[in-house]
Nucleic acid binder design. Structure first.
Lengths: 153, 153
DNA sequence: TATTGTTATACTCTATAACTATA
DNA sequence: TATAGTTATAGAGTATAACAATA
């Protein structure tokens, strides 16, 4: 029962929870739900990606993803395009308006929630990034290695 | 736009997401939803707490909490008791069965998801705990200091 | 036959606000 | 008047499974 990693996980959860509480207010203020913001944030600064990839990155299952994307499409924030190489597949990307929201809402969320880091030094950041990167590595290694990933465009 | 903390937050989110993916399978297998598991995990190893406190710790708003607790009560996993000192307030705690689930599901989730830490050294844990504790501190400091907290029982 | 995305169902969570009963 | 919890409502996310089109 004395699994030491539990303390880290609890800290991890508390940090995430705290940060979400901090940023959540600004997310909601933008009229986006958490899941929708997740999608926008994931698509931001990318050329777009398939439903499959989007689902994997955001932990949203395909059935749900249809609905979330649908609402974002209605809002004119994302657009879909049939993939050329696999006609079953859609390519989802931000529209101009979606990019505007990303560039608008994101920095606002960022600047507000980033205030708490005012006194962090470069060394503090380095240490944090290092330990989190290692943590991410072991966690991701725990997932099945099956990520076939076909080259396409 | 080059806010350095973003990298840390992204790593944080990826770690949390990865861990939830890892543990989520076992949580669902127990028949609990994520929110329900949150409650059980929060109540575990405590004498119980009020709705208010529970809501603060889990980020679940009071209106929602009523429903979540209701379902857990129906399952016989938690019980409520009027607070002596404040009759508006309920005291929520795990039942015997709830403790059994906590002691049963939790370790299973823990042992399965903990496998990825097999090669972590005490130093690795120390470093992780240290950086996360610091992170938690600055994040929590970002919340309003108003946590009056009345002593009671 | 396997995979991508859709549809349908049933349930759960969420935000919000009006309400009650206590304080 | 303010606070703890309830109720009601509308919207959104979730798991799951059956389905179409494509690979």
């Amino acid at each position: 029962m004395g699994a030491r990693f539990l303390k880290s996980i609890r800290l991890l959860a508390e940090c995430m929870q705290g940060y979400e509480r901090l940023s959540g207010e600004y997310v909601r203020r933008s009229g986006l739900t958490h899941a929708q913001f997740d999608i926008i944030a994931t698509l931001g600064n990318t050329p777009g990606m398939s439903y499959k990839e989007l689902g994997e990155k955001t932990l949203i299952t395909k059935g749900t993803l249809t609905g979330v994307i649908e609402r974002l499409e209605q809002k004119g924030l994302v657009e879909r395009q049939r993939s050329d190489c696999d006609k079953r597949s859609f390519f989802v990307r931000l529209t101009k308006e979606g990019e505007r929201v990303f560039c608008d809402v994101f920095p606002e969320v960022i600047s507000q929630s980033g205030k708490v880091f005012a006194h962090y030094t470069p060394d503090d950041f380095s240490a944090l990034e290092k330990t989190l990167s290692e943590l991410k590595n072991v966690i991701m290694a725990g997932h099945l290695p099956g990520t076939p990933e076909h080259d396409c465009d």
